[in-house]
């Protein structure tokens, strides 16, 4: 099920400049990063998700907005090509889209596999990358701006689907700028965070499932 959410963050083909970064150095970098990102309690950011499907010539581009409020709240709003909302609040998940006009809810307690997927999503977004060292070899691609590459370990479930994930951070390292995933299938997804606002009060409307 891990692959299910990993497919969310799709990719670029990035050659590691510092493949095999010493573990101690990576530990230091991840520790500092985790500390900085821990100071972020809310994030609201526009996003562009470019999916380059190996089967087709053109890209599928999704645009929208993401809201995160720690702990445990996430709103994922897609504006095009389809208006859609996913709201996660603790163990409750609800979603809506303009075409079905249906609001649907998912009980996390009754869907343990989805719980795993959500945990993965929150790991990527919250910056708790140290916890991901069990599943990924992490390499430093560049220090300024900070860019890390995550390569699934041999026994990791993600290895069945993902070649590598590259995460580029904003210049102040406080938050993610881009997540790129290269899949084994040859598909690539680039998730760009545009104009992120950190530690700002999020409007209550952001948590309303209907657009």
């Amino acid at each position: 099920m891990k692959k299910f959410i990993l497919l969310l963050f799709i990719t670029l083909n990035i050659t590691p400049l510092y493949a095999g970064t010493p573990a101690k150095e990576i530990d230091t970098i991840l520790g500092a990063l985790q500390e900085k990102m821990a100071k972020v309690s809310t994030i609201q950011t526009d996003f562009i998700q470019e999916k380059n499907l190996a089967l087709f010539k053109a890209k599928l581009i999704l645009k929208g907005k993401i809201y995160i409020q720690k702990p445990g709240m996430l709103a994922w709003r897609v504006f095009s090509p389809l208006r859609y909302t996913l709201i996660i609040s603790g163990s409750n998940i609800s979603q809506w889209d303009e075409d079905s006009k249906a609001v649907q809810s998912v009980s996390m307690a009754r869907n343990p596999s989805f719980q795993v997927a959500i945990d993965q999503m929150q790991n990527w977004f919250s910056g708790t990358y140290k916890a991901m060292q069990g599943d990924y070899d992490i390499n430093l691609i560049s220090q300024h701006p900070l860019k890390l590459e995550f390569v699934p370990k041999e026994k990791s479930l993600a290895r069945n689907f993902i070649q590598r994930v590259a995460v580029l951070f904003q210049t102040d390292d406080q938050y993610i700028k881009e997540i790129n995933i290269l899949e084994k299938s040859g598909d690539q997804t680039l998730l760009k965070f545009i104009n992120p606002q950190l530690n700002q009060i999020i409007s209550p409307q952001a948590w309303e499932v209907k657009a």
């Binding site: 969310l8 089967l55 087709f56 859609y84 996913l86 889209d97 997804t189």
Partner: peptide
Amino acid sequence: FRVSCLSPVGIKLFELT
């Protein structure tokens, strides 16, 4: 035909020709 079907958050569900 060729088709890729994705969830609205961009997760691929299936792909076939």
